[in-house]
């Protein structure tokens, strides 16, 4: 595959791969020139912390969308795990028990989603809309509609503390390690290849004996687990269980996954793209807050960003298709 790429093509590939990185650097510089506070250690820690949580939230979602499916339950899975963790602590389960319960919730919802989509062949949107409603409901019910406070900091607290001269929270490292492992799976193992093949022609990989049902199940379970891990980290970070925490993450998550799909493998959501796009959105929002933009304006910006990203991706795909027809 690679050996036929000439130097010129490699350079062209590099630019399509890394334009978002360049945009990120330029934007950071532009905002920092207006508001130098952007690069204050305190702000950097905040940005990296929310970056880590966001990446955890959408790592699994990236592959679900790459495989041509959709999962709109991930943010409510996070909310459920978040509440379950806080509620478990209030019941005296201890931190590890509470974290375990949170992750089990993610596993269970992931299994349910995967079973309904892969085995029962229901449409993924309807399934995950329903499980999202179910999770949100359960999350609220755990706290009888209100927030559950967490008194004592848990084992993850040290991860959220700034390290390395006060600018980097430790949590970034395990999250990046996990993302790196996922990148390896996506690029070097059969699973990554099958994920992208599945989006294009599920029958093709089914006919050569790839366990499509197992793969689909695995993708939804992984998405559920990632989201629940994010929910557990949120419990530690906020020192509370917040039943309504899921809502905003839906649009955030989809934006970073689809925006990230516009680099590295253009038109295909991928781990490296998701990482870059998450950092991009994180810096953008932090900068917007520093510049004094209210919440709802950021929401409008994000929607517009997602929409324009979609337009670019669709146009790129169409251009690709036409070139193909011509050649």
């Amino acid at each position: 595959m690679d050996r036929r790429h000439s130097k010129g093509r490699r350079l062209a590939r590099l630019t399509t791969n890394l334009w978002l990185v360049a945009a990120l650097v330029l934007m950071t510089a532009a905002i920092a020139s207006q508001k130098p506070q952007l690069l204050d250690p305190g702000n950097v820690v905040a940005v990296l912390k929310s970056f880590s949580i966001m990446v955890m939230m959408v790592l699994g979602l990236t592959w679900v969308i790459a495989a041509g499916k959709i999962d709109v339950s991930f943010m409510q899975v996070a909310a459920l795990s978040n509440m379950l963790c806080a509620w478990g602590l209030s019941q005296g389960w201890g931190w590890w028990g509470a974290i375990g319960a949170g992750l089990c919730a993610g596993l269970a919802v992931g299994l349910l989603n995967g079973w309904l989509v892969a085995v029962m062949r229901l449409p993924a949107l309807i399934v995950t809309i329903s499980t999202a409603g179910l999770c949100a409901s359960l999350a609220a019910a755990l706290g009888k509609g209100t927030v559950i406070r967490i008194a004592a900091p848990g084992p993850l607290a040290s991860l959220l503390e700034p390290q390395f001269g006060g600018a980097v929270p430790l949590i970034v490292l395990p999250v990046l390690a996990l993302a790196g492992a996922a990148w390896f799976v996506q690029e070097r193992l059969t699973m990554g290849r099958y994920i992208y093949a599945m989006a294009q022609n599920e029958a093709a990989i089914r006919s050569v004996g790839v366990p499509v049902v197992g793969l689909t199940l695995l993708l939804f379970v992984f998405s559920g687990l990632c989201a629940s891990l994010a929910g557990v980290i949120l419990a530690e970070n906020l020192a509370s269980g917040q039943p309504m925490i899921g809502g905003p993450y839906l649009i955030n998550g989809l934006t970073v996954v689809l925006l990230g799909g516009m680099m590295v493998h253009v038109g295909k959501p991928n781990i490296l793209g998701t990482l870059t796009a998450t950092l991009f959105i994180g810096v953008l929002f932090s900068g917007a807050a520093l510049l004094g933009l209210p919440d709802y304006q950021r929401q409008i910006i994000q929607g517009a960003l997602l929409l324009s990203g979609l337009v670019v991706a669709t146009l790129a795909a169409r251009h690709h298709g036409e070139r193909r027809k011509g050649g």
Binding site: I70, L258, Y296, R298, Q299, G303, L306, T314
Partner: peptide, 19 residues
């Protein structure tokens, strides 16, 4: 313009919610 329906309407809905 052939945009995907699910994500497009999520984006439009989000913009409206902001508006």
């Amino acid at each position: 313009f052939g945009l995907p329906d699910i994500v497009t309407t999520i984006a439009v809905g989000s913009i409206c919610a902001g508006l």
